[in-house]
């Protein structure tokens, strides 16, 4: 078991190193921040002045070395734009993002698991089809369309819900709905399939032969078997939620989250913020995935063997 944990940790370290390196060189390849931050209409000398000011005048190897050592010393540098420590900036954004993420995950679990079970039990009837159709809608519409429509209906027209920021519980309703679409679709589908897996197991036949109603059997055996796997699906969703899906939702609801920060710093080539932000998200995702893997390995020795 210990070797397994150690292996997982080593793999994490390698992955993080890969990410740090990839992000470092990808950003350098993609352009100079001076052309994005305040490069409009300045003279050549001034441009050189600013490049030196941002510490971008040394060779890329030197910069990379400096960056790696800064990662190990925990000094991640100043934002090019805001001139304050990037850790402070990312930290400021992490909590609002986390709150929205938790809210979305809770909402998703509450909605998707019953829907998935329903779709499995009634897979041959119309109920099952309807459930899946509804769930698929989550995949089918860009979240910013859902978000803006929600805003126009519930805030602009009906004036029921606030639209800006994360001040109160009411503020969470629309962003949660907008951001959860794909998550609901994914988890509903997953739950249904997991339940179908369970339905084909031998003990289900036994249970059914004993005359227990199918839904009791499903709940009892199915959910227990599916729970850890469910956790891992949620873990996998975090990376995409952290920026892919959430940047648009954060933008619509003026939510001071990390997705908005990452995309903005990428567009403006604010390398220090981008590097630290990606690293933070990656650490979170990898840690969650690793924790799930380890928990899973405890529960199921076969995985341990397969992975080891």
């Amino acid at each position: 078991m210990l070797t397994y944990v150690l292996r997982t940790l080593l793999r994490m370290a390698i992955t993080l190193f890969l990410i740090v390196t990839l992000v470092f060189f990808a950003t350098r390849l993609s352009g100079n921040p001076v052309d994005f931050v305040l490069g409009e209409g300045i003279t050549k000398e001034d441009r050189a002045l600013l490049i030196a000011y941002y510490g971008l005048d040394s060779s890329i190897g030197t910069q990379y070395w400096r960056y790696l050592s800064s990662v190990f010393s925990g000094e991640f540098g100043l934002s090019f734009l805001e001139r304050r420590p990037v850790s402070e900036i990312v930290l400021e954004r992490a909590w609002p993002s986390l709150k929205l993420l938790l809210s979305a995950v809770c909402f998703t679990l509450i909605v998707s698991i019953p829907l998935g079970i329903l779709a499995a039990i009634y897979r041959t009837s119309i109920i099952g089809s309807v459930v899946m159709v509804i769930a698929f809608l989550g995949y089918a519409v860009p979240s910013f369309i859902i978000g803006i429509l929600l805003v126009l209906i519930f805030a602009y027209t009906l004036n029921w819900l606030p639209v800006i920021g994360d001040g109160t519980a009411l503020h969470f309703i629309m962003p949660t709905l907008a951001i959860s679409g794909t998550l609901v679709a994914a988890i509903t589908r997953f739950t249904r399939n997991a339940m179908l897996d369970v339905l084909s197991q031998d003990y289900m036949r036994t249970a059914r032969a004993k005359g227990l109603p199918e839904w009791i059997v499903i709940l009892k055996h199915g959910l227990r078997n599916a729970s850890i796997t469910l956790l891992s699906v949620v873990g996998l969703q975090i990376a995409s939620l952290a920026a892919a899906g959430s940047v648009v939702v954060e933008s619509i609801f003026a939510w001071p989250g990390i997705g908005d920060l990452l995309v903005r710093s990428a567009i403006l080539r604010d390398y220090p913020v981008l590097q630290f932000g990606v690293l933070s998200v990656a650490v979170a995702v990898i840690a969650i995935n690793a924790a799930v893997d380890i928990a899973y390995a405890f529960a199921d020795p076969r995985i341990r063997l397969a992975k080891g």
Binding site: I19, T27, G31, A266
Partner: peptide, 26 residues
């Protein structure tokens, strides 16, 4: 296999929007 799976893990942990953005920029 180790390297490929390391890349897979890295890909999962980096938000794709950023990768797209950097490729398009470069």
């Amino acid at each position: 296999e180790e390297i490929v799976m390391g890349l897979v893990d890295a890909q999962i942990a980096i938000p794709f929007t950023l990768i797209a953005l950097l490729i398009l920029a470069a």
